[in-house]
């Protein structure tokens, strides 16, 4: 299968038809940043952009991504040596990262939220992130991080 991932055309060979986009990203394209917490669309840890729409990549069959544009958390970070973006800086500053397994999906989800609504209210933040489970933080510091990022303070 061929698709564009983080701006680069990529091809994966021998993709079994039952593989998800998440599996292809993680195991065939060397991009394990998108996470595999539930693989049934409940936790949001695998959130990526597909043609600009935030989706759970575990629910996208690999074939559905053919010819389309995928952006993962690795793509948002601008590379490992780049300075973190504002959402990422906000997560660090607020202490919103503990084990970090939910973090990549949340980074994408918050990036998506702020691109649509740069100054969300607290209820809007909660509604937008209702599909991203975090087991460590109790979400308080994630709320702080989103407020920080939205306020341009991170």
């Amino acid at each position: 299968m061929t698709c564009t991932v983080n701006g680069v055309p990529r091809t994966a060979d021998d993709v079994w038809e039952g593989e998800s986009l998440l599996y292809v990203l993680r195991e065939r394209l060397g991009l394990p940043g998108s996470k595999n917490a539930c693989e049934q669309g409940e936790c949001g840890s695998c959130t990526v952009y597909l043609d600009g729409t935030a989706v759970c990549s575990c629910l996208v069959a690999a074939g559905q991504a053919v010819g389309r544009e995928v952006v993962t958390v690795e793509g948002l970070s601008g590379g490992p040596d780049a300075e973190p973006g504002p959402v990422q800086r906000a997560f660090l500053a607020a202490g919103a990262v503990q084990c970090g397994f939910c973090t990549p999906g949340l980074i994408v989800a918050v990036d998506d939220l702020l691109s649509r609504n740069p100054h969300p209210t607290d209820p809007q933040i909660r509604e937008a992130l209702a599909g991203n489970l975090c087991r460590c933080t109790g979400y308080e510091k994630i709320m702080e991080a989103v407020r920080l990022a939205a306020g341009g303070q991170a």
Binding site: K35, V73, E74, P84, Q88, F91, G100, I107
Partner: peptide
């Protein structure tokens, strides 16, 4: 480990 975790680079 924070920067690795926010960029998807941390190896679980």
């Amino acid at each position: 480990d924070g920067r690795l975790k926010v960029s998807g680079e941390f190896a679980f």
